[in-house]
Amino acid sequence: MPIFKRNPFGHILFLKRWLIRFFGIVSHGRYRRFNSLQIEGSEIIRNLPETNVLFVSNHQTYFADVAAMFHVFNAALKGRDDSIKNIGYIWKPKLNIYYIAASETMKAGLLPKIFAYAGSVSVERTWRSEGKDIKRQVKMSDISNIKKALNDGWVITFPQGTTTPFKPIRRGTAHIIKTYKPIVVPIVIDGFRRAYDKKGLLIKKRNVLQSMVIKEPLEIDYENETFKEIIEKIQFAIEQHPSLLKVITPEEYKQQEDELNKKRKFWS
């Protein structure tokens, strides 16, 4: 491979590889020492094609969620079963993994810009900017870039477009699915919000049981299912459908916390 070979976005693969290696080593302890990441479904990753795969997930932090997925995907491809032990898997990472992120987020400082080079497909949000609600047209270049990423490899998206739970799925996700017909793999994560700050850069709490469940690809009739039907299917798959929302009392919340603490003791 030529040292200056580039991906479809013009990023030098040699540099991208070393960025993923470096940040993989730096972040590994977050999921193995400071906290514990429990994984289900690694075998599904190994059975996916090289391109045109769209991962849809709920969202809890800006960066920790994606970093964990990079670890889990690469570990699974190197034969790890529901584990990220032995970080040697990061030496030859899969370089065509991308994630969709808001341009506003990825331009907010040097570190996000470096993260963007490692695999971001940056898009302009059509509904919110700089903390304010807005309405603007979808940029065709954003859609084109998502297509480019799917043609080259795997794409991770957080279809709610926010870290706030139980927010609606954005219609654009269904549009991408109907237009490009990717294999759609749901992922459900938990524990990241408790463990890290909103950006996912600072460890807020240790000994948190984090989880990542990779589910079987969705069965989608690309031609006949409506946007609404696809959106509802995703909502249930990533466990964010409004019908699953339950208002609990402080006593019930405390009981759930006690049960989580028992699990943490078990896994440790």
Rank of each mutant, 00 (worst) to 15 (best):
F4Y: 10
N7L: 04
L13D: 09
R21N: 14
I25G: 04
V26M: 05
V26W: 07
G29W: 08
R32A: 12
N35L: 07
N35R: 06
I44Y: 08
R46F: 08
T51G: 02
F55Q: 13
S57V: 05
Y62A: 12
D65H: 09
D65S: 11
V66K: 10
A67Y: 07
V72Q: 03
F73C: 05
L77S: 10
R80K: 14
S83D: 12
I84W: 09
N86D: 13
N86T: 03
W91P: 00
Y99L: 11
E104S: 05
A108K: 15
G109C: 03
L111D: 01
W127K: 07
R128S: 13
K132D: 07
R136K: 15
V138I: 09
S141K: 07
S141R: 04
I146M: 10
N151G: 14
P168G: 04
I169K: 02
R171E: 14
A174M: 00
K181G: 07
I183D: 07
P186A: 12
P186C: 08
I187S: 02
V188C: 08
Y196P: 05
K198G: 00
K199C: 03
G200K: 11
I203A: 03
R206S: 11
V208R: 13
E216Q: 13
I220N: 02
I220M: 04
T226S: 15
I230T: 11
I234F: 06
H241P: 00
S243W: 03
L245C: 06
E251H: 05
Y253S: 08
E257H: 01
K262G: 08
F266H: 10
